[in-house]
Design a protein around this nucleic acid. Sequence first.
DNA 1: ACTTGGCACTCGACGCGCGGGAGTGCCAAT
DNA 2: ATTGGCACTCCCGCGCGTCGAGTGCCAAGT
Lengths: 340, 340
Amino acid sequence: MIEDRKLAVLRAIVEDYVATQEPVGSKTLVERHRLGVSPATVRNDMAWLEDEGLIAQPHTSAGRIPTDKGYRFFVDRLTSLKPMSAAEKRAIATFLEGAHDLDDVVQRSVRLLAQLTQQVAIVQYPTLARSTVRHVELVALSTSRLLAVLILSTGRVEQRVIEVPVELTDDLIGDLRSRVNKTAAGARISDAAAALGDLPDDVAPDNRSTYSIVVAALVEAISDHRSDERVVVGGTANLARFGESFDQSIKPMLEALEEHVVLLKLLGEATSPSEVTVRIGHEGPIDELASTSVVVTGYGSSDEALASLGIVGPTRMDYPGSMAAVRAVARYVSTILDEG
Amino acid sequence: MIEDRKLAVLRAIVEDYVATQEPVGSKTLVERHRLGVSPATVRNDMAWLEDEGLIAQPHTSAGRIPTDKGYRFFVDRLTSLKPMSAAEKRAIATFLEGAHDLDDVVQRSVRLLAQLTQQVAIVQYPTLARSTVRHVELVALSTSRLLAVLILSTGRVEQRVIEVPVELTDDLIGDLRSRVNKTAAGARISDAAAALGDLPDDVAPDNRSTYSIVVAALVEAISDHRSDERVVVGGTANLARFGESFDQSIKPMLEALEEHVVLLKLLGEATSPSEVTVRIGHEGPIDELASTSVVVTGYGSSDEALASLGIVGPTRMDYPGSMAAVRAVARYVSTILDEG
DNA sequence: ACTTGGCACTCGACGCGCGGGAGTGCCAAT
DNA sequence: ATTGGCACTCCCGCGCGTCGAGTGCCAAGT
């Protein structure tokens, strides 16, 4: 069992280091936090914490900084995410309520999150796999090109251009549209794709092949997972705040932010909105981002998460604050999407 | 009249400085470029160029660097944009041809431009004002919420959610849809909005008010200029290359890249695809970006530009290369959009 | 009238040495 | 177990001298 005071010391170190960005020594520690013991005692505790691998010193005769393991311990056992102030809650609510459009909601969430945490924010669009089809619209662009517009229960609207090697007539499209909608409406996207495969059974024989071609293209377009990769990034300017550790930090970060596939990996599996996942430094999936942490949670209805949202920042970040902000935003977004 | 050699010296200074990022002195200059004269002569020319405000020295006894005015001179009179190599042309063509969707085209253009120039690339979506309406689709989301999907000639698809304080029936929507399409199809968006104002004249009297409410909302949604602000940014990671001048350069840059309104100001008026506009340092509209240059051109049909596209980078950039790349990409994008 | 070599001068970059100070570990005392 | 004392370590900042690239100017050459 670890004594309370050692934990208090660890907590103090983390908080001070996060606040000042500088290694923290025993003397300044007892000054700033009323630990009620002398620096020498703290030093002993520090030596112990270092043995345990929770803190480290950059070089002899410097203060200590938390290790990844130390942050992990801090996050798991030494803190509960501090609740947002009433003012902050109000700010979140009013800021997000202005939106009706899904695009709006996503965009505002990113900005909000970035501003609240002063970090880089990432919001994923609701996963297609977990949405149901509300309506499918087909519009002829030319005689051989068809625009399919999918409207999903989450408010997401997807469009695809389909090239078909057959002549498209208005009747054909109209017929196809009503059939597709009858089959797909209300179904999950994967189910809809499956159900559409059976469609051409009861159509006029001479239209059969046309149908199957169009439907095949449609199915392929629908289940195209490329669009599951939709994420929005905001608050990049906050990267400018850690001006020092430049090459090791900012460059890989900027690169990652451009690769949406990488970002999705970073967000990971969507969890329920009630729990906030924290990945610290090397725990993340990307080696280049070993000195950055991710705070992420899911949003959507409470029983099933639609997608993820979170922030990315240096391992030395304000975890309680970030976690609280991420959770708060996720909740508000969830309720807004529920209403819409 | 300025003699040729002085111009040659200026050109050499610009080229060397862009390549090395270091102030260039008289001796290294005659070594690298076969100027056929001695360093002393070059020094005299340099003194003259400095008097003219075309070059400057950061401090006494350092080499010279071009001033903004020097770059301007260089761009205007000392260089013609070098044509792309055959290989590059092929690369551009194949890279862009894979796209059919407008989103695809835009996204690929940004990446391509960023990669070719090693700078931050910006591509604006085709302006709504210059597109014509191809089709309008209306879908009821609930009894009082309507989703309008506009499909434009450029391939752009815009969606808007409209709240209407009336009960929506399928008949009403169907009727409205056919009327709207009859009125708006083929028209420019501004004309369409105007024409829609007259719509409710020949409808059943008891539907009048409903129509006018819905149409008013629709018109407002259509002419919402918020969506003219759509731009896509890429190649942010290239910012990491100028690691030195950090706070003065990267931070305002990152901030600007988040504010799409600012970016639009930066892109400025769309010009014809044949001419490439260069704005150097302070010439730009944004004071914070005084040490960055913009290379931009329009794309779309040759007689009328649909929107702008270009790159942003430090004033010390490879202007001939950037200009050529920007123009090449704009041309390819234009032809692809013409076909589609 | 340019061009050129020579020359003195300037000034930033670099390396070095030297305290100052923050911080540590250890030990003896309580 | 805690604490004050103490010697030790090592980073950081400062001042200094040197080096060298680069300049401006001048007088001589073509």
